[in-house]
C-alpha cells in the first residue's frame, strides 16, 4: 500500500496550523471555558463551578465596563487615523529627500526599536507635571506659568496617551506607505503633469489610490497589534485617575491578576477579542477593495 499522500498545500500549511492551534487556539478554548466559571486564581477549585452566562450578564449591566469599551474604540479610531495621516506625511517627506535616504529610513523606524513598556516609562516621565520634560520646557520657554496636569485632566491624559501611542507606532504606517511610494510607476504621474494637473490633484487622483492599499495593510497589521498600547497605558496612568483613562486592557489585566478574578476577566477579554475581530475584518475588506482598484488578484 502506497498510503495516503496529502495534497502539497495541506502539507505546507500544516506547520502554521499546528503552531497556531497549540499556542493560540487551545489556550483560547481554555479561557473561553473559564469565562463561564467564577474562576479565581487564588482558589483553583472554582474553575469547576459552571455559572453559565453570569459573568457576561454582569458585564452587560456594568456601566464602567462599557465606558472603558467606548474609550478603547475611541482611542483606536483616533490613533489609527492620525497615525495614518502622519505616516503619510512622513513617508512623503522622506521619499522627496534626495540624499541620506538610508539614514532617514532608519531614523524613521527608530521608535519601533522601543519596547512598549519603555515608551510608557519614557512618556510618563516626560509628562510628569512637576519635574517632567514637557512642562519644564514649556515653563522655560515662557509659554505657560502653570504646571499642566498632563496625566490628570481627562482630556489631557487621553491626549498624552495618544501622543505616546502615535509616537511609537506612526513608523509602521510610514514604512508601508513609503514602500508604496517607491513602488509607484512614474508614467502616470508624468502623464498627469502633462495633462496640467496641479501637484495636489495628481496626488489625489494618481498617488493616493496607488498607496491606499499600503495604508490599509498597515492599518490591518496595527489593528492586529493594538493591544501593544496596553503596556503604554498601564505604565503611564494605569487607567486612572478616577478611571478617566481606563481602557479595556487595563481593566482586564487588573481584574485578572490583581483581583485574581480570571473568569470575569476572560469574559471581558472575549468582548475585547470580538472588538478586534470587527476592526480587522473591516480593514481586511477595505484592503480587498483597494487591491481590486489597482487590479491585483485575490
Amino acid at each position: 500500500m502506497r498510503g495516503w499522500k496529502p495534497a502539497p498545500h495541506v502539507l505546507l500549511l500544516l506547520p502554521a496550523f499546528v503552531v497556531l492551534a497549540a499556542v493560540v487556539v487551545v489556550p483560547l478554548l481554555l479561557s473561553l471555558y473559564s469565562s463561564f466559571t467564577p474562576f479565581r486564581l487564588t482558589r483553583p477549585e472554582t474553575i469547576y463551578t459552571f455559572i453559565g452566562f453570569r459573568n457576561y450578564l454582569r458585564l452587560f449591566a456594568d456601566q464602567e465596563f462599557w465606558v472603558a469599551f467606548g474609550r478603547t474604540v475611541l482611542l483606536l479610531t483616533i490613533a489609527l487615523n492620525l497615525e495614518m495621516v502622519l505616516g503619510l506625511f512622513l513617508a512623503l517627506l522622506v521619499e522627496k529627500a534626495t540624499r541620506g535616504q538610508r539614514l532617514l529610513r532608519t531614523i524613521m523606524m527608530f521608535p519601533m526599536m522601543f519596547s512598549p513598556i519603555l515608551v510608557g516609562f519614557q512618556f510618563k516621565f516626560m509628562f510628569n507635571d512637576n519635574i517632567g520634560l514637557v512642562n519644564n520646557a514649556l515653563q522655560s520657554l515662557g509659554l505657560t506659568d502653570r504646571a499642566i496636569p498632563w496625566l490628570i485632566d481627562s482630556q489631557l491624559a487621553f491626549t498624552s496617551i495618544l501622543i505616546a501611542e502615535i509616537w511609537s507606532s506612526t513608523s509602521v504606517f510610514a514604512i508601508f506607505i513609503l514602500a508604496g511610494l517607491m513602488a509607484m510607476p512614474r508614467e502616470p504621474l508624468e502623464a498627469a503633469k502633462v495633462d496640467g494637473c496641479t501637484p495636489l490633484q495628481s496626488f489625489r487622483y494618481v498617488t493616493w489610490p496607488f498607496i491606499m492599499p499600503f495604508a490599509y495593510i498597515a492599518m490591518t497589521i496595527r489593528s492586529l497589534d493594538i493591544a501593544r498600547a496596553y503596556d503604554i497605558v498601564k505604565i503611564m496612568t494605569d487607567g486612572g485617575p478616577a478611571k478617566r483613562t481606563e481602557i479595556l486592557w487595563t481593566l482586564i489585566s487588573r481584574t485578572a491578576y490583581s483581583d485574581a478574578r480570571m473568569g470575569l476577566a476572560n469574559a471581558m477579554a472575549y468582548v475585547a477579542i470580538f472588538l478586534s475581530i470587527l476592526f480587522t475584518i473591516l480593514f481586511f475588506r477595505q484592503l480587498a477593495k483597494a487591491r481590486q482598484q489597482i487590479g491585483a488578484e485575490w
Binding site: 510628569n128 507635571d129 512637576n130 519635574i131 504646571a147 499642566i148 496636569p149 490628570i152 496612568t237 485617575p241
Partner: peptide, 20 residues
C-alpha cells in the same frame, strides 16, 4: 502637585529629591 493622583512611590521620591 497637580499630578499627585497619578503618582506612585518613585514619582514622590524623585519629586522630593528635586527640591520642589
Amino acid at each position: 502637585p497637580a499630578g499627585t493622583t497619578n503618582y506612585l512611590w518613585d514619582d514622590l521620591g524623585q519629586g522630593f529629591a528635586s527640591g520642589t
